[in-house]
Write a protein that binds this DNA or RNA. Sequence first.
DNA 1: CGTCCGTTTGAAGGCTCTCAAAATATGTGG
DNA 2: CCACATATTTTGAGAGCCTTCAAACGGACG
Lengths: 232, 232
Amino acid sequence: MSRPCNDCKVRDQSLCSSLSDEELSSLNSIGHNRKLERGQTLLWAGDEAALCANLLEGVLKLSATLPDGREQIVGLLYPADFVGRPFSEQAEHTVTALTDAELCVFPRKPFEEALEEHSRMERLLLRRTLAALDEARNRMLMLGRKTAEEKVASFLLDMALHLGKPESRPGTPVTFDLPLTRAQMADVLGLTIETVSRQMTRLKRAGLIDLPSGRLVTILDRDALEERAEAA
Amino acid sequence: MSRPCNDCKVRDQSLCSSLSDEELSSLNSIGHNRKLERGQTLLWAGDEAALCANLLEGVLKLSATLPDGREQIVGLLYPADFVGRPFSEQAEHTVTALTDAELCVFPRKPFEEALEEHSRMERLLLRRTLAALDEARNRMLMLGRKTAEEKVASFLLDMALHLGKPESRPGTPVTFDLPLTRAQMADVLGLTIETVSRQMTRLKRAGLIDLPSGRLVTILDRDALEERAEAA
DNA sequence: CGTCCGTTTGAAGGCTCTCAAAATATGTGG
DNA sequence: CCACATATTTTGAGAGCCTTCAAACGGACG
């Protein structure tokens, strides 16, 4: 058995938060720790969906592709998020690490049994799946109806929520390190690299954000950014 | 109590298919039949999510809007589909009838209790929600990365699947009556009315489809349409 | 210090949108 | 059942946003 769950970084945020310590140790016996390097793929769309997991650390992307190679990132996963597709023989989307990452991995079949055995966990997964569905649908609005500037602004605000320091005072600048390249941002937003880059410099020149170096982003004027995110 | 479930059009396709006859009658006691006219809205985004339902007949749209009125249809619901958002105080998306429709409606709170009581139904809802999530994400690929022609071709194939006669011989033309206006198609595909219309006539002139009258569509060459749906 | 990868910037083109009007379908009242 | 009014769809012309193609710039790493 791998490392005891007491040390787990996401013990009380992941699906496992629904389990008692005893239940947890039985689940733990079928799971094991796994690390991914940036760029490494955990599951390929079309392949057997062999496993499920809790993400402990890092950021993953979920992506879909067309036969000619065009790619769309259809979801981003953060620590404590659930990974995988129970009850499906085949993975529908590809799961790849955007940063070095760490997971608690379960073979799918035994995990499905654990779900049926631990109804509180099943219930929590249902709630999370419903929330993920709402989120995916909201992202459809962004993809179908927002302009390039609105898309980039929305994306930056979303990243700030996930990566920014917890609750700095409103009005205070927030800084974070983007885990995505421009190409990956483009694949999230349904744009091209060049368009993303141009919109970033536009926002910078407008004084709404700063790009100090590398992939660092500082949000200087959150309110103005929010306005541009949905053309009030 | 409303009409007995034995007459139900979707008794063994809806969520209820997971219930025994006795279980069903207890659920039935909290549900009632409701009809919607074309254009009528069942739930408004932002309002209290007061109810859940099984769709018995007709087609519904799920939509999201931006403050300035731009709209995106984020999902279509067909008979036997589940409607609503359990465990959420607020509806995230607006639900509106595209055709006259009939539902079996449950107040949300009692329905949530029924879910917890009938674990097979809860499990089935989980599976359906996971499938809906996969579908929503695939639609993100369409919105973000497909051209107008590919979007329209994909849409027509999708409609044929849902509305076409069950399993006509491959190669045989399929005809169906679109439940959506051009404007609604545009809102599904993230395009404008005019672009949708132009792509439809292009496909017609190319001999892949026919538009006999009104909203009737005939798919003449399914294979060719599939090729244009994802630019092989 | 040179190479490689990612980012930025520029110029031109094309796909889709916008604006506009004609054509067709739908619906209503007489 | 027809005539009119309304809504929807089609078609056209032009503009604009984003893409494509290309090159310069910058940072990381050997």
